[in-house]
Nucleic acid binder design. Sequence first.
DNA 1: GTTAATACCTGTTCGC
DNA 2: TGCGAACAGGTATTAA
Length: 276
Amino acid sequence: MPELPEVETVRRGLMPAMQGKRLDAVIPRRPDLRFPLPDGFGQRLTGRTVVDIRRRAKFLMIDLDSPDVLIAHLGMSGSFRLGAAAFPEEKHDHVIFKMSGGGEVHYNDPRRFGFMDLWPAADLAAHPMLARLGPEPLDDDAFSGPVLAARLKDKKTPIKAALLDQGVVAGVGNIYACEALYRAGISPKRLAHTVQGARADKLAAAVKAVLKDAIASGGSSLRDHIRPDGELGYFQHSFDVYGRTGEACANAACGAPILQIPQAGRSTFYCSRCQR
DNA sequence: GTTAATACCTGTTCGC
DNA sequence: TGCGAACAGGTATTAA
């Protein structure tokens, strides 16, 4: 699923295809994704030039030479495909961007959990989806052990659920929450407010590390993530616990089977021996 | 105010 | 083999 590292990889893949190029046409193939596309979506974008593409948490923010910023979220099945002019459309290609110079970018999203919106650049921080986001985990000034500890202090939910709360830390999804807790040796069932001091330091460091590792594995082989058909989307990593129910713990000295439990309606994977 | 449950979606996997 | 149920999950909304 596209979490922060995947979105960052998509951003890097889109840059050469879009930055500095004009949007000769933007064609929505349906009126809505998860939410209705904003009024005049195609018209407001057509003729504009892409100045930059930024990322905040799992959101892509495409800066234009206009007062609007195009905000895009991949949901859980969203991906972009790059190709030459008029390359074949596939099922679930919901938005087509025709770029100056002849390239095209197709946004594909079978489950339509993603969305796009246009918002004034001057007031970007006030966007309802962005306003409530917690600190950016890879920003060392914004996110650290003490910051995390302070945000968990009054939380009575399990730490796993708290990590998924985008207001606590932005951009962590189910997969990396599981992986970070494993690396930090913290049980997903531990109550959030008990993660303080050294534990919070360890967890904050683990969150940064799993995200950085994933970006590095995506970024270092970005070409491999643009498949022959041009698809830019999520990619497979090797995980220590996620999806490994019943397999032996990656810690050779442990070897206990990885357990899977439901938490807040999501699957949690963990080692009951290494994580306390 | 905080937390938990449910809705939204459809392709894939699982079990009978 | 075939079919339906369960599952995947980020965020909004509703309920508790």
